[in-house]
Amino acid sequence: MTTFWMLAGMAVLTFLIRASFLVFGRGLRFPAWLHEALHYVPPAVLSALVVPMALAPRGTLDIGWDNAYLAGTLAAGLVALRSRHTLLAIVAGFVVYVLWRLVLAG
């Protein structure tokens, strides 16, 4: 039931946003500050999700060399910055993460 309401709410909200101007919006106007602020939603949201998972994967701060999440995240970030190739960066991050865990376990 919760899953149903989650989907229903997400679907309705997303449609209303997309329909805002195209369907309802002949009189709507977009404030300039909001226009600018929206550019920074993706970096803010994604970083807010990534940083705690990379630096505190088990809930407490862990910035030691044995943190495989941190190693993999740094690898993915560096490859993405250098190559601008999203998929390559994901694969590189994942490979470093898996190798890190294998080496630590072995």
Partner: peptide, 14 residues
């Protein structure tokens, strides 16, 4: 971790 890597790869170039 695949999720972390995906988000990182999207955000880093920005």
């Amino acid at each position: 971790f695949a999720m972390v890597a995906t988000f990182t790869a999207i955000v880093a170039p920005q």
